[in-house]
């Protein structure tokens, strides 16, 4: 096997690796070599970047986006410290556990909505691009025929504007109080007695925007949570409102 022609020359294999042209066994050997040669990683990554641009972009079928995002909403993520059994446990409990939503809503009238809200520390500003893209999406939703728009007050100050078009719900928050370091605003969708996370709302200078796939949810909540998100609301939502359809 070790003729001059096929003696492994790992340097030359960077291109083949970047093009996915290595057999699995060769790929493993190459990747092990790459880990031992950190000075070569940058070059290999650059070639991979080139390879990733070699096919013309083609828009996927329109329905695929909603189907992927719906699947995403019920798919747990890997995290560095996650124990998969814990996640499973949490999901089981969430599925069969009693709703805490109605309790929270009942409590909202009597509790001060200050859980976790503080004014001392400034968080890192949100990535401007993400915020702008989401804002643009909400603005686009507003201009779609038949979209309904409602604005509600947040109990800690500020407002949330909901734009519903089909099963897409745009949320535009403004004037929300700053939260303390390590905390953030989390979005919730309620359907009957169940509440599920709709992700974190990136808020910068009190404003934030997000577009959700609303499915059959009929309520929207926003609460202050640890910035990594909670499985269920742990503080009284600053916003809780039925989603008004046309």
């Amino acid at each position: 096997m070790n003729t001059p022609e096929n003696t492994p020359d790992r340097f030359d294999e960077k291109a083949a690796w970047a093009l996915d042209a290595l057999e699995p066994a060769d790929r493993e050997v190459f990747e092990a070599w790459l880990r031992e040669h950190p000075e070569e990683v940058h070059e290999a990554d650059a070639l991979r970047e080139v390879a990733s641009r070699l096919a013309p972009p083609v828009d996927p079928p329109a329905g695929l986006r909603a189907s992927i995002l719906a699947e995403v909403a019920r798919t747990p993520q890997e995290t560095a410290q996650e124990d998969p059994r814990d996640e499973l446990q949490v999901r089981r409990e969430r599925r069969r556990g009693p709703s805490r939503w109605s309790v929270l809503v009942a409590a909202a009238g009597v509790l001060l909505a200050v859980g976790g809200v503080g004014y001392g520390l400034t968080r890192e500003p949100a990535p401007a691009g993400v915020e702008q893209a989401a804002r643009q999406q909400v603005t686009d939703l507003m201009t779609t025929p038949g979209a309904t728009v409602q604005t509600v007050r947040a109990s800690g100050g500020g407002t949330a504007t909901l734009v519903l078009s089909g099963d897409r719900l745009g949320v535009l928050a403004a004037g929300l109080p700053e939260v303390s370091a390590g905390r953030g605003y989390q979005l919730w969708l309620a359907q009957g007695d169940t509440v599920s996370s709709a992700g974190m709302l990136t808020v910068s200078a009190g404003t934030g925007a997000s577009v959700l796939d609303v499915g059959s949810a009929d309520g929207l909540g926003i609460s202050v949570e640890p910035e990594t998100g909670s499985q269920q609301p742990t503080t009284t939502p600053v916003v809780f409102t039925p989603i008004v359809a046309a």
Partner: peptide, 25 residues
């Protein structure tokens, strides 16, 4: 990066930015 922290809205933005390139490939 935001999606890695559970932000589904950010993931939608990521999808919009990259889906045509993935699908084309």
């Amino acid at each position: 990066v935001a999606a890695a922290r559970g932000d589904q809205g950010a993931f939608a933005t990521f999808y919009d930015a990259t889906a045509a390139a993935v699908h084309g490939t």
